[in-house]
Amino acid sequence: MIFLTVGSQLPFERLVRVVDEWAAVNNQKVQAQIGKSQYQPKYIKGVDFIQPRQYDKLFKKARVVIAHAGTGVIMNALELQKPIIVMPRQEKFLEHRNDHQMATAIRFKELLGVYVAMNEEELGNWLGKINELKGGYKIQPYASGKILEAITELINA
């Protein structure tokens, strides 16, 4: 099973459409959280919002996660060492208020296990190789080191 999520705040039809068309041709089972989307996928199982507990279950079960380039979902994938394909939202398509996801995608690209597609074509390429994708860089469930020390220091000062 492949899990697709675009978060819960905004739809991301460009991403959902490509995955839907790919799932149709390749007969892939995809479960998806697609937000309040005009485009309703035909071949993947998409709902507006998935409760956090169910979301966690699907996330863990999925062989690969496909998502917008949101830090929450990327960190979740790194924690579980789950391969993740991400495509950034773009302001020019009215997919977000600014282009910060482009910057996020470029920066996170360096981490093993994060497969970045800057556009639909690159997304298609990763989908074509989906069976070869592997998890990589692992993070712990909580932050550590300097950043926690800086916060603790101020709180106790």
């Binding site: 830090t71 929450g72 960190m75 932050a143 916060i151």
Partner: peptide, 11 residues
């Protein structure tokens, strides 16, 4: 939210 939770050991 995910980032805030990750920082929670500090407080």
């Amino acid at each position: 939210w995910a980032e805030l939770v990750r920082l929670s050991p500090a407080f």
